[in-house]
């Protein structure tokens, strides 16, 4: 237990901040993922074949390639790409993007592919009559979507989105390879300096279990709330 003490003698406070970092990266990645889903879900559902192709390309490639490879692409290629864009605007200095942004972008793009599939499935399983009925009642387009379609999509999507959240949370462990100090990285550092890897990695496993357990409990509450009408 001494190893987990807070303060200078133990690793308690370091691991606590690392846990907060994991939560922060997961939430950011999930939001980035929603942003991508917002762009690519309409593309996948579009009437035009070319737009479909773009949407399918995104979800197929990201879901078929290992997460670690995507992270390496961002880690090694991220600053290069930014510098290339900057050089077009006449800025030639070296730009380094921090590990938090690279990590949450990489994980966000991965989680976005899964979210896109979830939203596509949810929208497709809504009865066509719902759209038509809303139109017949003379509700404007904005009202149709936000008041009638969106609540139904959320009800269908939340159970699957909770899976996406679990995947995202577990994927954040992979960005420890970029040097961002989250649970995995902090355990690695602690294991290295105390020569006690078994304890620290097991503790990391417990922290992850705790995070998944608590977040499942919270999501279940949301599920109940959106299922009210059924």
């Amino acid at each position: 237990m001494e190893l987990l003490a807070f303060g200078k003698t133990g690793w308690g406070d370091e691991l606590f901040y690392a846990t907060l970092m994991t939560i922060a990266v997961s939430i950011t990645a999930m939001l980035v993922g929603f942003f991508f889903a917002l762009i690519f879900t309409p593309l996948k559902l579009s009437k035009y074949k070319t737009l479909n192709l773009v949407g399918n390309f995104y979800t197929t490639v990201i879901r078929g390639v290992p997460e670690l490879l995507v992270i390496y692409l961002f880690f090694f290629g991220g600053s290069g790409a930014i510098m290339y864009v900057a050089s077009i605007f006449g800025y030639y200095e070296y730009i380094e993007i921090n590990a938090f942004i690279t990590g949450s972008m990489a994980i966000g793009i991965i989680s976005g592919a899964y979210s896109t599939e979830v939203f596509r499935g949810a929208i497709q399983s809504i009865d066509k009559g719902q759209f038509e009925a809303a139109k017949v009642l003379g509700i404007n387009k904005f009202g149709q979507f936000y008041k009638i379609i969106l609540p139904q999509i959320l009800r269908l999507a939340i159970p699957n989105l909770s899976n996406v959240w679990q995947i995202t949370l577990k994927d954040t462990s992979l960005i420890s390879v970029t040097g961002l100090v989250e649970i995995m990285r902090q355990s690695y550092i602690a294991a290295g300096s105390t020569r006690d890897p078994l304890f620290f990695y097991s503790f990391a496993a417990v922290l992850y279990l705790l995070l998944t357990y608590v977040s499942m409990k919270l999501i279940n509450k949301l599920e109940v709330r959106y299922n009210k009408g059924y």
């Binding site: 577990k170 994927d171 462990s173 078994l198 990695y201 097991s202 496993a205 992850y208 279990l209």
Partner: peptide, 23 residues
């Protein structure tokens, strides 16, 4: 199944590769 599905694969590999050698 709960433990292995609730923790990242990376942690599992590290426990087995780095951790077990310590015993």
């Amino acid at each position: 199944s709960y433990i292995f599905r609730g923790t990242p694969l990376l942690v599992q590999i590290f426990i087995i590769y780095f951790g077990l050698g310590q015993i």
